[in-house]
Simulated scan of single mutants.
Amino acid sequence: MANYTAADVKKLRELTGAGMMDCKKALDEAEGNVDKAVEILRVKGQKGVAKRESRTAENGAVVSLIADDKKSGVLVELKCETDFVAKGEKFLAVADAIAAHVAATSPADIEALLASEIESGKTVRTYVDEANATLGEKIVLDRFAQFSGGYVAAYMHRTSPDLPPQVGVLVELEQENAEVAKDVAQHIAAFAPKFLSREDVPEETVANERRVAEATAREEGKPEQALPKIVEGRVNGFFKENCLLDQPFAKDNKKSVQKVLGEAGVTLKRFARFRVGA
């Protein structure tokens, strides 16, 4: 008969984030000793890292870190396999540690971040692999954002009250305005613009939209003389849907985001929006 209780299984799950069956097997092997079971899971986890590479990590969390002077900020997405791990303290501690490391070191890109040293003799890549082993799931770090120079703010959105934020937005304004920063960040979270302005849309994307708009209009049997106006209208519709400054503002759809910013006397320099797994 097993020499451990359901409480021991629960404790081991909370300590490691491992699945129930894995915890039971580890406790069986450790003859009920929770500390030894933790070690067993870590060892087995390290061996199983490669096996987990083929799994899908679509859960996780977005975390942010804003400097006290509001002149810089970081946004990090860390993914895992299950919401059970995503809401665990150990997983969130890893995400927060990585965000603090980004804030302190300002890596150029994700590869530079993964190769950088987060602890003595330990790279971020190794740090994530250890979390992978300890938590018993595939843990993925593949994007972050860092802004500095202007007024930086973040908005974090929970899609479920029992989960950490699944959507995070980082904005940088040229002028300090906490209210506008919050309102615009919330708008970005809700409407997911792909670009800041029309000027940021690649030329090939615009050209493709024009081709599609013209082909669609011809398919619909629109008059030849009306095509230029129809195409222009549909391309403008694309800008209005995908460019933040062109979008109708969430709190007042009679105004564009550009107009709201202009009335407040502020300029939005850039933004980043992460949604876990998207």
Rank of each mutant, 00 (worst) to 15 (best):
K222D: 10
F147E: 10
D129Y: 02
S106W: 01
T267G: 04
A50E: 09
A93K: 06
L135D: 02
N3R: 08
H187M: 13
R158S: 14
E179L: 13
N59C: 04
V140R: 00
E203C: 05
I98H: 02
S160F: 11
F195E: 09
D109Y: 14
Q46G: 04
A181N: 04
A131P: 00
A207N: 11
C23S: 09
H157V: 10
R158Y: 03
E172C: 04
K71L: 11
A97D: 08
V169E: 07
R275S: 09
K71R: 04
D129H: 03
A154M: 06
P202N: 04
A104I: 04
E220P: 13
R13C: 06
D142L: 12
A278E: 15
A50M: 15
T216R: 15
G150I: 00
G150K: 02
F239V: 15
A181G: 11
K25F: 10
V49D: 05
E39T: 14
E179Q: 15
E241H: 09
G237V: 12
F191K: 15
F274K: 13
F271A: 15
L27D: 00
T82D: 06
E117C: 01
R210V: 10
P165E: 13
I110F: 01
A86R: 01
R158V: 14
Y4P: 05
G265N: 12
S106Y: 06
N236A: 11
I40N: 09
S148T: 12
V169Q: 02
P248R: 07
K51Q: 15
V231K: 01
F91N: 01
D83N: 10
A100L: 10
G221Y: 08
A95I: 07
D28R: 11
D8A: 07
A133M: 11
E53G: 02
D252P: 04
A272S: 14
S160H: 13
G121L: 03
A37H: 07
P165R: 09
T5H: 03
V235A: 11
G233K: 07
K269V: 07
E241F: 13
T123C: 06
V152C: 09
K269Y: 06
R198N: 14
A86L: 04
K222N: 08
E81Y: 08
R275V: 09
R273N: 05
A272V: 03
K259S: 14
G149N: 12
V171N: 01
A30L: 07
L78W: 01
K71E: 14
P165N: 10
L113P: 05
T16E: 01
K259N: 14
E203W: 03
A104Q: 13
N3C: 12
D162H: 15
A104V: 06
V266A: 03
D68G: 05
E219D: 11
L163I: 09
D129P: 07
S116P: 12
A153R: 05
A154N: 14
G221I: 07
S120N: 09
R13H: 13
E137I: 08
L75C: 08
V94D: 00
R13V: 06
I118S: 10
F91A: 08
C80S: 05
